[in-house]
């Protein structure tokens, strides 16, 4: 309960700071402010997908159904944040490049990412038996996550992309001034808190639904 309130206030402060405290970025101008929302959303998406894979591996090792539910919740949250990253990215692209969508390698790879996890949910819905569904979708989640490095890290660097890079590869440092870095890191923290809270709520819901199913089955 207290955690929620802290995340709520923290998020509000970040939103206000991103418009008032943070300076407009060099090169990107006012559109650069969206970085405070876009980049954390993308990172949380990758984090949630990673957790989906970790839980899938845990399910295959231990065979406990709660890991399967946790993997499912993580895949759902990852998809929500991935959609948010796509939308904020498209809005920024409209401001900076003049078009909402132009199949930049980053846009291509995020589309594929969304399709992969959509296929994951299709697979889950196609199987009736609980154990079999858990097992097969765990294998698919692991396979799916293996394509993430290709999509998120390799493809945008191998093919020419106009997407700005946050980390300067040659100097190994963040290309940001101090005020911006402060707001950005606070936003990252706020998004992580938000993810943790959403995950917790959703996990409790899924556990209760499962117990209800068990009761009906008896």
């Amino acid at each position: 309960m207290i955690g929620q309130i802290i995340v709520g206030i923290w998020m509000t402060v970040v939103i206000i700071a991103s418009f008032l405290y943070m300076p407009a970025t060099q090169g990107l101008g006012e559109t650069g402010r969206i970085l405070v929302y876009h980049v954390p959303a993308a990172w949380i998406a990758v984090l949630a997908y990673l957790m989906a894979m970790v839980n899938s591996i845990a399910y295959l090792r231990h065979g406990e159904l709660r890991f399967d539910r946790q993997a499912q919740v993580n895949a759902e949250l990852g998809t929500i944040f991935c959609i948010l990253a796509t939308i904020t990215g498209a809005i920024w692209s409209r401001g900076a490049w003049g078009q909402y969508w132009n199949w930049d390698p980053r846009q291509t790879s995020i589309t594929v990412l969304l399709m992969i996890y959509a296929a994951y949910f299709v697979l889950r819905s196609a199987i009736e038996d609980t154990d079999r569904r858990a097992r097969l979708s765990a294998v698919y989640a692991i396979l799916a996550f293996l394509t993430v490095p290709f999509l998120v890290f390799i493809v945008p660097r191998v093919y020419v992309s106009l997407h700005p890079n946050l980390i300067n590869v040659s100097t190994r440092s963040f290309d940001m001034d101090r005020k911006m870095l402060v707001v950005f890191l606070s936003s990252l923290l706020a998004f992580t808190g938000l993810y943790a809270w959403m995950y917790n709520v959703q996990k409790r819901l899924e556990n209760l639904l499962y117990r209800l199913d068990m009761k009906r089955g008896e």
Binding site: V112, M115, I116, A118, A119, V122, L123, Y140, L143, A144, T147, F150, L151, V155
Partner: peptide, 10 residues
């Protein structure tokens, strides 16, 4: 096809 297409896209 549904499962293979996204995984094979890269």
């Amino acid at each position: 096809t549904v499962l293979a297409f996204p995984v094979l896209l890269p």
